[in-house]
Amino acid sequence: MHFSKGRFSSTLIVLATMLVLFSMPILAGMAIANVASDDVSQSANLSAETIQGLRGHLNDYIKKDAQLRNWKLLETTITVSSQESSGAEVTAIFDIERKFRLNFAKAEEAPAVKGRLAFMKEKSGRLSAKQLRAANKEVEIWQHDIADYIANNQDCFERIKVVGILDSNGKLTPGTIKFYSEGPLGGDYVAISHDKIPTPQAVEKAAYDTISATVKEAEKDKKVSSTATYYRLMARDYANTYTSNTSLACQSGNSTKQDKNYYNLAAYATWYQCNDCANYVSQACNYAGIPRTGGSWTPYLSCWINCDYLTTYMVLNDNWLFATNNNINECVAGYPFELYTPLSGGSRDYYHVMMMVSNDGTTRFYSAHTSDRKQKVWNGATYVQYFKIPSNVY
Rank of each mutant, 00 (worst) to 15 (best):
I177M: 10
F179N: 02
Y180E: 13
S181K: 11
S181M: 11
E182I: 00
G183V: 03
P184A: 11
L185Q: 10
G186D: 01
G187E: 06
D188C: 00
S193L: 00
H194L: 14
D195K: 11
K196F: 07
P198Q: 03
P198S: 02
T199K: 06
T199S: 15
T199H: 01
Q201E: 15
A202C: 00
V203C: 03
E204P: 06
E204C: 04
A206L: 09
A206C: 06
A207P: 07
A207D: 05
T210P: 02
I211D: 02
A213Q: 15
A213E: 15
T214F: 12
T214H: 12
V215E: 06
V215A: 09
E217K: 13
A218S: 15
A218D: 12
D221M: 13
K222Q: 13
K223H: 12
K223Y: 11
S226Q: 14
T227P: 01
T227G: 10
T227D: 15
A228Q: 12
T229G: 12
T229E: 14
T229V: 15
Y230H: 10
Y230I: 08
Y230A: 09
Y230F: 15
Y231K: 13
Y231T: 09
Y231I: 09
Y231F: 13
Y231H: 14
L233W: 14
D237N: 15
D237W: 08
A239Y: 09
N240P: 04
T241Y: 09
Y242A: 01
T243F: 07
N245V: 05
N245G: 08
S247Y: 08
L248N: 12
L248E: 10
A249C: 08
A249M: 03
C250L: 05
C250A: 10
C250I: 01
S252A: 15
G253I: 03
G253W: 03
N254F: 04
K257E: 07
Q258G: 03
K260W: 11
K260N: 11
Y262M: 01
Y262F: 13
Y262L: 01
Y263W: 12
Y263C: 02
N264Y: 11
N264V: 00
A266S: 13
A267T: 08
Y268D: 05
T270L: 01
T270S: 08
W271L: 00
W271N: 10
Y272W: 13
Y272P: 02
Y272A: 04
Q273Y: 07
C274H: 07
N275Y: 12
D276P: 02
D276L: 01
C277V: 03
Y280M: 00
S282T: 02
S282W: 07
A284T: 05
A284R: 03
C285I: 10
A288E: 03
G289W: 06
G289N: 06
G289Y: 07
P291T: 05
P291L: 01
R292P: 01
R292C: 04
T293Q: 06
T293E: 07
T293M: 05
G295K: 14
G295L: 13
G295M: 08
Y300T: 09
L301K: 12
S302N: 03
S302Y: 04
N306Q: 14
Y309Q: 11
Y309L: 10
T311R: 03
T311E: 09
T312G: 15
T312H: 07
